[in-house]
Design a protein around this nucleic acid. Sequence first.
DNA 1: TGCGTTTTTGACAATCATTATCGTTGCCAC
DNA 2: GTGGCAACGATAATGATTGTCAAAAACGCA
Lengths: 132, 132
Amino acid sequence: MSESSAAVRNTRQRSAVSALLGEMEGFHSAQDLHAMLRQRGERVGLTTVYRTLQGLADAGEIDVMRPPGGEHLYRRCSEGHHHHLVCRVCGRTVEVAGPAVESWADRVAAQHGYADVSHTLEIFGTCPTCPR
Amino acid sequence: MSESSAAVRNTRQRSAVSALLGEMEGFHSAQDLHAMLRQRGERVGLTTVYRTLQGLADAGEIDVMRPPGGEHLYRRCSEGHHHHLVCRVCGRTVEVAGPAVESWADRVAAQHGYADVSHTLEIFGTCPTCPR
DNA sequence: TGCGTTTTTGACAATCATTATCGTTGCCAC
DNA sequence: GTGGCAACGATAATGATTGTCAAAAACGCA
Ligand SMILES: [Zn+2]
Ligand SMILES: [Zn+2]
Ligand SMILES: [Zn+2]
Ligand SMILES: [Zn+2]
């Protein structure tokens, strides 16, 4: 018994949020995305934006970043495990993969007897187009 | 002229917070530390605990961790740049150094033209004493 | 196409860590 | 000593995120 339906329904709001994420370049907050939707004339509640983003994040369809002292930022990324190189001025983001880092983290954790290992890694800097 | 005094005054409250951090083993939140101080009979305001922790963090004397969906956690660490391997059950923390990771991050950033590079890295797992 | 069931929505209230206020306290250089 | 100025702290404010719950909308099925 039990699992009968994934029961994920197709709604106008969910599509709107997902579509918007498809067009956005960098990371954006829930509040930002909500404001953009409103300007487009899309009628979507803030609560729904939060819920949708959370769902997409849980499903691994979008990435979440928690910058120091700010709101959560969301972005549609390419598939597979990767990390972000972010401009701390304009937010321009580059996806970077580092197999060596991945294995290093797992190895270090194993050496100390830690199991079920995961990690977070973000690189910050000022991008070429943001002199000064 | 200019720099005359660091102007950092010695106060009973600052000493209390700093001393407490010296005895604590893992990471603790501002609210936790404040509660501990009160139980000891130390009379320190919550605002002051926040301010002191922030100051110590800015001065690089303590490390801050921002676990997903929780408060900021503080801990007195050894000197020098390092990262943390944290048990997501009990909080037991091991400091780890990874020169290879440091250079990798800098190299990747440089390749993309990013300057003034910094990074954040945390490894999570369940420690040996937290079976299951 | 109409219906019932179940999910989703969204306006609004609630949470809660952190920050801002601002009058009082007390450190410390002189 | 004492005056100036940093630090304190009770309290209010902030603000992102989450909880609530009645109403709206999907969708499987007839
Ligand atoms: Zn930039
Ligand atoms: Zn990784
Ligand atoms: Zn543990
Ligand atoms: Zn590092």
